[in-house]
Nucleic acid binder design. Structure first.
Lengths: 213, 213
DNA sequence: GCTGTGAAGTAAACACCGTTTACATACGCT
DNA sequence: AGCGTATGTAAACGGTGTTTACTTCACAGC
């Protein structure tokens, strides 16, 4: 059986948009098989191009993977945003803060379960630092880390988090959800049914909220 | 410069202990470079044996990696045990419970920082389930998960954890520390100085203890 | 003590991967 | 029109996992 609907041989010598085509192919491979599945030669094959053509657009396969990872991070951010947009400030600031934190946690975890390959790819190898993220694709333009910070800020503003509790709270909250996601995806919790995972997720967000203060 | 002190050509046709030799070589590769660095051919080379000889002892490279991962898990368990052995029951059961939980968390995190390659290997691909672990090397014969359960049991016995709080607490506590370890090892917290990581670790254990109840 | 049988090694090959070097094409600018 | 350069191709190299066919030798049973 042939993959990818048959690659029609293009007529033009130039591809026209090879760089994007490679990223798209890579993204799909990441979606299906995680970071180790993004194979440079395979991407060129799907783009209907010779293997080394890729090197006109990426220094090496690692650079391609970087681009794919960036795309994965964007999708994760978008998933979190979707979850956050369900709530508006309203008249109870504390409830808004809590709901924001919950949205980040569950959006994160939900994406990990819905798109394990992309999630694993997003966090495969070190993106040097979280500050200058070159892919703010999602509509708010914030990466997952910044979305979490936003939620924590809301909690602080509403008085749910006092001064000392706010410092570095990103790291604590993130660690918690990230850890659960990975234990479920590729750790010993692999066989746990999704509804139980989500229940754990709810509980873990509560634990963070209570434990941070 | 030659690696591994020069492989002396053995005189006997049989190697004698090839399986273990391959695991040992693989473990060292994992230590240095993580799961992706355990290369079957390289292992046979270091054992002074032809590449396909490995297939007399392992079905494929994945099977070799499984064995190496199992060894990594054992080392992690041993590191946690070392941390736990620093405390004995004493006359304050609650303090003992708290110290036990802290030992598990910090032992886990400390190993991750001291031996990133082994740690990443230990949790690379799914060990099907956590129950029938074929490598109880550490002296108590408990795997990391079981050591955590033990610590939580102590907290429960001492009254620090009431009935409902105890259920599934393993997953919550583990997620937290595991997440921090991975964010530090291969995530956006890559550049964080170790002392700050340890401080976060202390704080996270407190958060768990307080958040669980 | 001889033998034969099966476990444990070797040799050679295959397909696939990333990457490099040398060459071909055609786009777009002057 | 012509040319420079960005973008493609062809062919090759070394490394990987894996398979197939052959060789060696330790040891059990006569």
């Amino acid at each position: 059986m042939k993959k990818t609907v048959a690659i029609e041989k293009r007529k033009t010598f130039r591809h026209g948009d090879l760089r994007n085509a490679l990223i798209t192919a890579g993204l799909e491979m990441a979606r299906v098989g995680g970071p180790d599945a993004v194979i440079l030669r395979q991407a060129t094959r799907e783009a209907g191009v010779s293997p080394n053509a890729a090197y006109r657009h990426f220094a090496n396969q690692s650079a391609l993977l970087d681009a794919v990872r960036s795309a994965c991070l964007s999708q994760l951010a978008a998933a979190i945003e979707d979850e956050m947009k369900k709530f508006r400030p309203g008249r109870d600031p504390q409830a808004f803060g809590r709901k924001s934190l919950r949205a980040v946690g569950m959006g994160y975890l939900g994406f990990a379960m819905r798109e394990p390959g992309m999630f694993r790819t997003a966090f495969s190898v070190p993106p040097p630092i979280h500050s200058p993220d070159p892919a703010p694709t999602a509509s708010m333009g914030l990466n997952p880390f910044q979305l979490l910070s936003l939620a924590l800020d809301r909690m602080q503003e509403s008085g749910l988090l006092k001064g000392k509790g706010r410092e570095g709270a990103e790291y604590l909250a993130w660690s918690t959800v990230h850890g659960l996601a990975l234990l479920v995806l590729e750790g010993p919790l692999h066989a746990m049914p999704p509804e139980m995972v989500l229940a754990l997720g709810e509980r873990i967000v509560v634990m963070v909220e209570r434990g941070l203060r």
